[in-house]
Simulated scan of single mutants.
Amino acid sequence: MTHARVALFEAPDEKLTVVDVQVGPLAEDEIRIRVAGVGICHTDLTALRGGVPLPLPAVVGHEASGIVEEVGAEVTTLVPGDHVVVSFDSCRTCTQCTSGRPAYCELFAALNYFGTRLDGSTTMSRDGEPVHGNWFGQSSFGTHAVASVRNAVKVDESLPLQLLGPLGCSLQTGAGTVMRVLRAKPGQSIAVFGLGAVGLSALMAAKALGCTPIIAIDPNPERLNLATELGATHTLDPNAIDDIAWAVTDISANGVDFSVDAVGLESVVQQALAVLRSPGICATLGLQGLENDIVIDQGHLLLGRTLTGVIEGDVDPHQFIPQLVDLWKKGQFPFDKLIETYTLPEINEALAAAAAGSVIKPVIVFD
């Protein structure tokens, strides 16, 4: 039995409480990591608002990086001391997983959202009572987390481990969408709506691929300035423009080849479709909740446009995270510019900063 210090989620819209829990024995395919850093993702905020039916009490957090401390009996590809980034969990055996699309694993919900292992057991307890973990196969808002070989990606020990966690979710979501779903090519145009970590990751990927123009759209002037620094050729404040579609068309001649919605609001999805040329593709990534009705103009689709939803960038983290690390080494994916660090006792402050949008990617770091 291992003790861990975690930020406990006990009721929606209430502050997290830092408490001690017990981490139980590992299953045969699991690993225990000592967390070095964990990013705060918009999906964590959605869960903390009650937008995901996670049983409570629970621990969330799903963008962890850390050092392997112990491995289960059947684990052969990782050993204690390995540095890892922990991403979403997937079974690795279903049709979607074996075809290279683990983000659409047939067991995705059970492995990532239910708060227990598949057999109903929990990885943590407090005073003999269950604490629900397994949030995205990790529950990493704490000093230790239990994951598996399926969702732990080994990384080089020379890398800045505390900062790598967001590669496991928000960064791969934005970048993977542009590189693996849209498959943008040099010279193709793109508009990105919403410049949080996901949107800015999409923008950086578009820059790395040679897209032009790259149009960044957000009402926050500081984020527009950062977007320019990261590769946007044009920036637009939607609050200062009467017609976004006209403004984008004016920049890109006939509309853009691709658009990325990293917000999820109906009005933004509608705008992201309207700015496309025919044919063109809009990828919607923003999560406003598991139920989020939107209305779109069928005429946009009849003109040859496509609207597609994307989970986790539709990538295999074991292949894609090393690619993002290589881009970072080359200076082509400077995700560290998005990060501001906090300690575990400051987690509620970090969550508030993420919710308010005053910090793009808060990361909780540990010694």
Rank of each mutant, 00 (worst) to 15 (best):
T116E: 10
F114D: 13
S90M: 06
S99R: 15
N112V: 07
C105Q: 12
C97Q: 08
G133I: 00
L78W: 03
Y113A: 14
V79Y: 00
T98W: 05
V155Y: 06
R92L: 11
A109S: 14
S148H: 02
T93K: 15
E129K: 15
H83W: 09
L111N: 06
Y113T: 13
S99I: 03
G100A: 04
S148I: 02
S121A: 07
D82P: 00
L78V: 07
A145Y: 02
D156E: 14
C91M: 05
D82E: 08
F141D: 10
E106F: 01
G128L: 04
R92V: 01
C94W: 01
F88H: 01
G81E: 12
L78G: 04
D119L: 08
D82Y: 04
V79S: 14
T93E: 15
V85W: 03
S90H: 14
N134I: 08
F141C: 11
A147D: 04
T95W: 03
G133P: 07
G120L: 08
T143H: 09
S140M: 11
S87R: 07
F88C: 07
G100Q: 10
S87E: 08
R101C: 03
W135T: 09
T77A: 15
L118F: 03
H132K: 10
N134L: 04
S140A: 15
T76N: 14
V85Y: 01
S99V: 02
A147Y: 03
V155D: 11
S99C: 07
V149G: 01
A145N: 09
C105K: 04
K154C: 00
Y104D: 08
C105Y: 02
D89N: 14
F88A: 05
T116S: 12
G115F: 02
M124I: 05
N151E: 06
A109V: 13
Q138H: 05
R126L: 05
V131F: 01
R126Q: 15
V153A: 03
R101V: 03
D119M: 05
G128Q: 11
G115N: 10
V153P: 07
A147M: 01
M124W: 00
S87D: 10
Q138D: 03
H132F: 13
R150K: 13
S139R: 06
R126E: 10
A152H: 05
S140K: 09
T98P: 01
T122R: 03
C94M: 04
